[in-house]
Design a protein around this nucleic acid. Structure first.
Length: 847
RNA sequence: GCCCGGGUGGUGGAAUGGCAGACACGGCGGUCUCAAAAACCGCUGAGGGAAACCUCGUGAGGGUUCGACUCCCUCCCCGGGCACCA
C-alpha cells in the first residue's frame, strides 16, 4: 500500500531537519571550486509574492544543483529594509517603521523556509540594522575622502507625494516617481551627490567585459550613460551695446563641422545669464514669459511630442568663432539646462529642432552640408562664401555629405564623426576657441533624501569649519527613535539628534538631517554576505576574495539601470580603494520574467494576486516550485494557471508512486550501471535514462529549467511504459531501480523535500540526497543500435528507413534508394543528389 | 524617431539549418467502480479520405539552401526601454 503523497507532512519535516543539521551553512573551502549564486534581496513590504517565488526558486535550483556537482556554493539572503513604504505603513498603523519592517522580515523569512530555499541564514543582512548601515556610512566617508562626494545647489527632481528629492534614475519615462508614480517637479535645492560621472567612461567600456549579461540590459545602461563625442566651442559675448566684451560662453556640439551654418544661439530658460541680460530691456517681458512657461510646464508636457516650443530674443549677440559673424541670442524651452552647458549653437540646416525654430521665427537657414545627390551642389560646390541663405528643403539634413559655404573647409567630406568634424575641431584647438570633448547623459547620483527611514548621512555643518565628516570612530550615527513620523517629522525635527559639536573646532554645530537613498544600501550588500558578521571591518579581504565576484545574479529587469549601474559604480570605487581586486561585481546576470495573471501584472489594486502561501497549503512548496519553473523559460513572462499547478502536483504523484513501487518490489534487483538490460524494453529505458541525465544537466547549465523538467517527465513516462511491459514479461528490475535512484537525485534541486523523502525515507539511503553527487551519464549508452531515418524526396518526407546506427553513408543511400515507395516516386526521373544526415534523414534530389 | 525583445495548435510552450508542435494544460474516449473522484490506458494542428495516405500549415512577401520556425532582405503587428541629449 503506497502512502498518499502529502507535502503538508513531509515538507515541514525536512525543513526542520535542515535547520537542525545546519544543512545550508557554508564556509570558504579551498579544496573545492566556489560558486556564488545571488538573487536580488527583497524589500520587506509584506507577504512574499509570486515574483519572489520565481526569482528565488530559480536561484535555489542553481545553488542546489551546483552543490551536488561538487562546488562550494554561497547562497545568501537578506532584506533591503530602509525606504518609504515602511514609513507610510508605520504612519497608517501608528507603529515605528522598525517594528513594521522587522515583523515583515520575519514573515518573509518563514515563507522562504516554507518554500525550501537553501539560504545560509547566518549570513543574512538587514540594511536597517545598525551593524549594516554603520558600514554604509563608512563607505560615504571613504567616498568623501576620495573626492566622490559633493554637496551642491542645482535643479533637482522633487516628488511632492514622497516629499523628497529623487535621483535621475528614479524618475521614470513619463516624468513620474519610481515608487509612487506621482508627477515629479523641478526644484532648485542644495543636495548631496555621489560623483558617478567620474566613472561614466569606465561604466560604459566595461559593459563589453560582461558577455554573461543580457544584451537588453547592456543596451539600456549604454543608452543611459549616453556618451557623445563632439567639441566645446567658445563664442565671444557681446555687451548691451553689441560690441564684443572679451568674455566667452561655451557650447557643446557633436557637429562642429556645421559651425558655418550657425545663425542663432540659444539659452535654456533656467540659464543664469538670461535674467541678467534682459533685465530692464524691451526684451524682458517676452523672455520672462518663456521662462515662466517653461517653469510651469511639467516634465511630461515639456518632453511630449505635442508640446510647442516657444522662444524669444534676448537682444544680445555672440560671435561665431569660425567666421566672426554676430548671431542673435534667443531663449527657448527646448534647450535643457541639465545637458551640456545649457547653451546651444543653432544650425537650422543641420538640426531638425533648430530648423523648425528658424522657420517659426523667420531666421536664416543657410546650407553648409550637402548630400552627394543634392541639386544645390551644382551651384554651391566649392563655394566658400555664403551666397544661399535659405535651403529649399522640407527638413534639416544631418547625414553625410560635403561642406559648402564654409570658408577654407569648403569641399571637405563630412558627417557625424567624419573628416570635417575633425578638421574644424583641430582648427578650433589651434585658435584656442574650442577643444574635442566627450559629453555624457549620465548625471551625478543625487543620494540625499529628506526622509526619516534611511541611513543618516555622517556629516556635520559647522558655521566656522563648513562641512565636516563625522569621525570614523564615532560611527555609526544612529537613527534616533524619538521622531514622530505620523506627524510628518524627520530628523530635522529632532534637536537631540542634530544638535552636536563640531569634530574639528569643538564649537556648536548641526548634524546633517538628510538620509541616504536606499539604493546606496543595496549597492554593496552582495559583498557583505561574504563576511556578514564582521564588526571590525566592512569585510575581510580574503573572504570577499574567495567568494566574489557573484557568478550568477538573478533578479528583475526593473533594476536594469538603477541598482545594477550603482552596484557596478560602487565596485569600481572599492577596487580603486584596494578593497576588492576586480572591476565588475556580477559575472552572469539573469533577468527573470514577470508572473502575470490574465495578461496583467499581479497587483492588489487589480485584485488578481495569487498568494504563494495559499498555493503551498494547497499543493505544497515542491509543486509550486516545479510548476513555476516548468511553465515558461526563466527569462520570459509567465501566465499563471491553476490547472498548471494541479498538473505538476499530478506529476509529483506519479514520481512518488513510481519510486514507492520500485522500492517495494522484491523482484527489483540492485541498481548499478552493470545491471543487465535484459530485454528490449529495458534497453530502451536504460538509453532513456542516459539521454535524460545528459539533457537535464545541459538544460540547467543553460537555464532551460522548463525543458529540464519536461525531460524528467519523459523519463518518468518511459519508466511507466517499461513497467507496463514488465508486467507482461516480468524482467528488467535493475533498470527500474537505477532509474528511480537517478530520477530522485535529478529532481532534488527542483523539489528538495520530496526528493529527500524518497531518497532516505523510501529508497532507504543514508544521508541527505542533497549531499549526493549529481548522476553521471554516458552519451554512448544513450545511443540505440538502430535508428529510424526520414527519407525525403525533393524536400518532402515520403518514407522511413531503419538502419544500424553505425551504418555508413553509402549503405544508407543504397537502402533509401531501394525503398519501394522511393523507387516509384523516382520513376522517370534521374537522381541528381543524395544527402545523408547521420541519425536524422536522407534527402534525395531528383528531376 | 532610435534601440532591444517577441509573433508556432484551443492554451502554456518544444525544436546545434534536418521528420514542426517535445513536455504539459484543456478536451474527447476507454479501464476500474453501484456511482463519482483518483489512478491507469488511448486519441487530440487544419482540411480531405473507409483506410493506406494526400494537401496545407510557424505574422506577410521575397531570397539563400538538397532542406528554413531557425540564416539574409523588405514589411506588418505586439511588448519593453530611451527619447527635444544639441
Amino acid at each position: 500500500m503506497i502512502p498518499r503523497y502529502d507535502p503538508s507532512v513531509i515538507e515541514p519535516k525536512w525543513q526542520q531537519r535542515w535547520r537542525d543539521t545546519g544543512a545550508h551553512a557554508v564556509s570558504e573551502d579551498s579544496a573545492r571550486p566556489k560558486y556564488y549564486v545571488l538573487e536580488m534581496f527583497p524589500y520587506p513590504s509584506g507577504d512574499i509574492h509570486m515574483g519572489h517565488v520565481r526569482n528565488y526558486t530559480i536561484g535555489d535550483v542553481v545553488a542546489r544543483h551546483l552543490k551536488m556537482r561538487g562546488y562550494s556554493v554561497l547562497h545568501p539572503m537578506g532584506w533591503d529594509a530602509f525606504g518609504l513604504p515602511a514609513e507610510n505603513a508605520a504612519i497608517k498603523s501608528a507603529t515605528h517603521p522598525a517594528e513594521w519592517t522587522h515583523a515583515n522580515i520575519e514573515r518573509q523569512r518563514l515563507s522562504f523556509e516554507r518554500m525550501g530555499f537553501s539560504y545560509d541564514w547566518d549570513r543574512a543582512v538587514v540594511t536597517c540594522d545598525a551593524d549594516y548601515y554603520h558600514w554604509g556610512q563608512w563607505i560615504f566617508l571613504k567616498f568623501w575622502e576620495r573626492g566622490l562626494v559633493d554637496r551642491r545647489r542645482s535643479p533637482v527632481n522633487w516628488c511632492p507625494s514622497c516629499k523628497t528629492v529623487l535621483a535621475n534614475e528614479q524618475v521614470l519615462g513619463e516624468g513620474d516617481c519610481w515608487r509612487c508614480h506621482s508627477l515629479v517637479e523641478k526644484r532648485e535645492l542644495e543636495q548631496w551627490y555621489f560623483k558617478i560621472t567620474e566613472y561614466a567612461q569606465e561604466l560604459l567600456d566595461d559593459l563589453a567585459e560582461l558577455p554573461g549579461w543580457p544584451e537588453r540590459v547592456k543596451t539600456m545602461q549604454a543608452n543611459w550613460i549616453g556618451r557623445s563625442e563632439g567639441a566645446e566651442v567658445e563664442f565671444e559675448i557681446c555687451g548691451p551695446d553689441g560690441e564684443p566684451t572679451g568674455e566667452t560662453m561655451t557650447v557643446f556640439t557633436t557637429r562642429p563641422d556645421t559651425l558655418f551654418g550657425c545663425t542663432f544661439f540659444l539659452l535654456a530658460p533656467e540659464h543664469p545669464c538670461v535674467r541678467e541680460w534682459v533685465a530692464g530691456t524691451p526684451y524682458e517681458a517676452e523672455v520672462m514669459r518663456v521662462v515662466a512657461d517653461a517653469g510651469r510646464a511639467t516634465a511630461v508636457e515639456r518632453t511630449s511630442g505635442e508640446h510647442e516650443w516657444s522662444g524669444a530674443p534676448t537682444g544680445r549677440f555672440v560671435v561665431n568663432p569660425v567666421n566672426g559673424e554676430k548671431v542673435p541670442v534667443w531663449v527657448s524651452d527646448y534647450v535643457l539646462m541639465e545637458y551640456g552647458t545649457g547653451a546651444v549653437m543653432a544650425v537650422p540646416s543641420g538640426d531638425q529642432r533648430d530648423f523648425e525654430f528658424a522657420r517659426r521665427y523667420g531666421l536664416a537657414i543657410p546650407p553648409v552640408v550637402l548630400a552627394d545627390d543634392d541639386p544645390l551642389l551644382e551651384l554651391l560646390a566649392g563655394q566658400t562664401e555664403r551666397v544661399v541663405r535659405e535651403v529649399p528643403w522640407e527638413r534639416a539634413y544631418d547625414g553625410p555629405g560635403v561642406m559648402v559655404q564654409s570658408g577654407s573647409f569648403t569641399g571637405t567630406p563630412t558627417g557625424k564623426g567624419g573628416q570635417g568634424v575633425h578638421a574644424v575641431t583641430e582648427w578650433l584647438e589651434r585658435e584656442g576657441r574650442g577643444r574635442a570633448t566627450v559629453n555624457f547623459r549620465l548625471r551625478d547620483w543625487l543620494i540625499s533624501r529628506q526622509r526619516y527611514w534611511g541611513n543618516p548621512i555622517p556629516a556635520i555643518h559647522c558655521s566656522s569649519c563648513g562641512l565636516v565628516p563625522v569621525p570614523e570612530a564615532e560611527l555609526p550615527v544612529l537613527l534616533p527613535s524619538g521622531v514622530d513620523i505620523t506627524k510628518g517629522q524627520t530628523l530635522a525635527d529632532a534637536p537631540s539628534f542634530f544638535q552636536t559639536d563640531c569634530p574639528s573646532c569643538g564649537g556648536p554645530a548641526r548634524r546633517e538631517t538628510d538620509t541616504m537613498d536606499t539604493f546606496t544600501c543595496s549597492s554593496w550588500y552582495y559583498l557583505r554576505y561574504c563576511d556578514a558578521r564582521n564588526d571590525t571591518a566592512i569585510w575581510d579581504a580574503d573572504r570577499a576574495g574567495y567568494w566574489m565576484p557573484v557568478d550568477q545574479y538573478i533578479g528583475g529587469i526593473e533594476h536594469a539601470i538603477l541598482h545594477l549601474l550603482y552596484s557596478r559604480f560602487f565596485t569600481k570605487v572599492f577596487r580603486d580603494m584596494g578593497l576588492v581586486a576586480f572591476s565588475e561585481p556580477f559575472t552572469n546576470l539573469l533577468t527573470q520574467g514577470m508572473v502575470k495573471k490574465d495578461g496583467e501584472t499581479m497587483s492588489k489594486s487589480k485584485g488578481n494576486v495569487v498568494a504563494p502561501e495559499d498555493m503551498i497549503s494547497e499543493h505544497g512548496a515542491d509543486a509550486l516550485r516545479a510548476y513555476i519553473l516548468f511553465m515558461a523559460p526563466p527569462d520570459k513572462d509567465l501566465e499563471w494557471s491553476y490547472e498548471g499547478v494541479e498538473g505538476m502536483s499530478r506529476f509529483l504523484g506519479r514520481v512518488w508512486r513510481l519510486v514507492h513501487t520500485v522500492a517495494a518490489d522484491p523482484t527489483v534487483g540492485e541498481a548499478g550501471d552493470g545491471g543487465a538490460a535484459d530485454d528490449v524494453a529495458s534497453a530502451t529505458l536504460r538509453r532513456e535514462r542516459h539521454r535524460v541525465v545528459g539533457k537535464v544537466t545541459g538544460d540547467i547549465a543553460r537555464f532551460n529549467l522548463n525543458t529540464a523538467l519536461a525531460a524528467m517527465m519523459e523519463l518518468v513516462n518511459a519508466a511507466y511504459d517499461h513497467r507496463k511491459s514488465r508486467a507482461e514479461g516480468g524482467v528488467g528490475g535493475a533498470v527500474q531501480r537505477e532509474v528511480a535512484q537517478v530520477l530522485v537525485r535529478m529532481l532534488a534541486p527542483f523539489v528538495p523535500h520530496m526528493a529527500e523523502e524518497l531518497w532516505s525515507g523510501v529508497l532507504g539511503f543514508e544521508g541527505s540526497v542533497h549531499e549526493q553527487p549529481w548522476p553521471e551519464w554516458d552519451d554512448a549508452a544513450a545511443r540505440a543500435e538502430s535508428v529510424e531515418l526520414a527519407v525525403q524526396v525533393n524536400g518532402k518526407v515520403r518514407d522511413r528507413l531503419v538502419v544500424a546506427s553505425d551504418a555508413g553513408d553509402d549503405e544508407i543511400r543504397e537502402a533509401a534508394l531501394g525503398l519501394e515507395k522511393v523507387a516509384s516516386l523516382l520513376a522517370g526521373s534521374t537522381v541528381r543528389k543524395v544527402v545523408v544526415v547521420k541519425g536524422k534523414l536522407v534527402s534525395i534530389v531528383a528531376g
